[in-house]
Simulated assay, not measured.
Amino acid sequence: MRIAGEIILKSLGAWVAIWGFSRLLNAPKKLECYTAGVGMIGWAVYLIVEVFNDGILMKNFLAAVAVALVSQAMARHFKAPVILFVIPGILPMVPGAGMYRIVYSIVMGPENMVGTYLLETATAAGAIALGIFLGEALQKVFFYEFHR
């Protein structure tokens, strides 16, 4: 039960952070809460997968698929561009700390760690990109198949 509480609390924190990000980037006011909701869903999926599988690839991939599917649904419902929901949705998963570690290792220190950090960051970014692609492809296949 403790893990569920942590996931809910962290997901709500992600909602607040993404809502602020949406305000900062002047997202349409009527959609700010919904863009934050997409990000909250993506982060919740990330945290749930983390409980079962600590691999960076699976966490980012499944969360990105969820973000893509929910973003497509929101875009259709609100008749808005999908990118308006996808960018805030993937924001919590972006491997910014990995990029920092790469640059820090290049500038300050142990060069033998640059490759490790680079591989980890590229894996996370690739999993996010692949998850978005697959989520959008799945949505198009199912939407067009069942709504002819």
Rank of each mutant, 00 (worst) to 15 (best):
L84S: 12
S11G: 15
M58V: 15
L91E: 11
G39F: 08
L69F: 04
Y104H: 02
E111W: 13
F61L: 11
M40V: 05
G39D: 09
A75D: 04
I18M: 00
E120H: 00
L62I: 10
A4I: 13
G126S: 10
I102A: 06
L57M: 08
Y46W: 03
Y117A: 07
A137K: 07
V16P: 00
Y34N: 10
Y34I: 15
A80I: 11
I87Q: 09
G98L: 06
G55P: 00
R76Q: 10
A64H: 13
A36H: 11
H77R: 14
A73L: 15
L130Y: 02
G13L: 01
L12Y: 12
V107N: 05
L119G: 01
M58S: 15
A27E: 09
G135P: 03
T35G: 05
E145M: 11
G13D: 00
I3D: 09
G98M: 08
R2Y: 15
A97G: 01
G131M: 07
A137C: 02
P95D: 05
A75K: 03
V107S: 06
L118N: 11
A27D: 07
G37W: 02
P28Y: 04
L47N: 01
R76G: 06
I7W: 09
A124T: 08
L84E: 05
A68R: 05
L62C: 07
Y144A: 02
Y144Q: 02
G126Y: 12
